[in-house]
């Protein structure tokens, strides 16, 4: 529909968005596979999973949930602002989103650090002495939160590029699809965390 909407600028915003969604759906299946693995091992080792999850800090996990949810809000507002032609607020909101993303990673780093200090990390002798289910739980914990953390890091890089685009004037009220697609990615990373949170922290 929007092909050649600007002289010399060939674009297909609808196609770009459908492509982004296809990628996001493949991400859902990637994490989905791990969620199934988690459920299967938990089904087999309910007591070990319960005991191991009791060692994670639910307050730190909740704090990280609040941080990521708030970053999703600033992301959505940033897109809304650029659509309304408010370039400066849009940039500030994007800076806030990146800041919350970094805060999330910092928090995650503190959490991992505490666990590693206690000798709990993949293949550590302390962990290998534990029951089989607990080894599986912490293995899944490191792989799933680690892969999620990498996604947050990728999202931060993406948003930094988008910010450069806004400052250079490449993203403006009549061309905001790249920012919108980056927002979709950021929100998906948020959704994955929404499910990681109740599964790993001592809620269940």
């Amino acid at each position: 529909m929007n092909i050649m909407s600007e002289a010399g600028d060939i674009r297909d915003d609808t196609g770009a968005k459908v492509g982004m969604w296809l990628f996001l759906l493949s991400e859902i299946l990637l994490f989905g596979g791990m969620f199934i693995l988690y459920s299967a091992y938990r089904f087999k080792n309910p007591v070990d999973f319960h005991n191991a999850s009791g060692e994670l800090d639910v307050t730190l996990g909740t704090l990280n949930t609040l941080i990521l949810l708030t970053s999703s809000l600033t992301m959505a507002l940033s897109i809304s602002a650029i659509q309304k032609g408010q370039r400066r607020p849009s940039t500030y909101l994007l800076v806030a989103t990146i800041f919350f993303g970094l805060l999330f990673l910092l928090n995650k780093g503190i959490e991992w650090g505490a666990k590693i200090d206690h000798g709990i990390y993949p293949n550590s002798s302390t962990l290998l002495d534990r029951p089989r289910g607990e080894i599986l739980f912490f293995g899944l914990y490191y792989v799933m939160t680690g892969l999620h953390g990498l996604h947050v890091l990728a999202g931060i890089c993406l948003l930094a590029v988008m910010m450069a685009f806004i400052l250079k004037g490449k993203i403006h009220p009549s061309r905001f699809t790249p920012l919108e697609n980056s927002g979709l990615y950021w929100h998906l990373v948020d959704i994955i965390w929404i499910f990681l949170y109740p599964l790993f922290y001592p809620i269940t």
Partner: peptide, 21 residues
């Protein structure tokens, strides 16, 4: 406005959704 998928949500609705979350 040339981008077709125009979104009409205002700031207030986003904040309300965030509050619910």
């Amino acid at each position: 406005k040339s981008d077709k998928h125009e979104v009409s949500l205002n700031y207030r609705s986003y904040v309300l959704v965030w509050l619910a979350l």
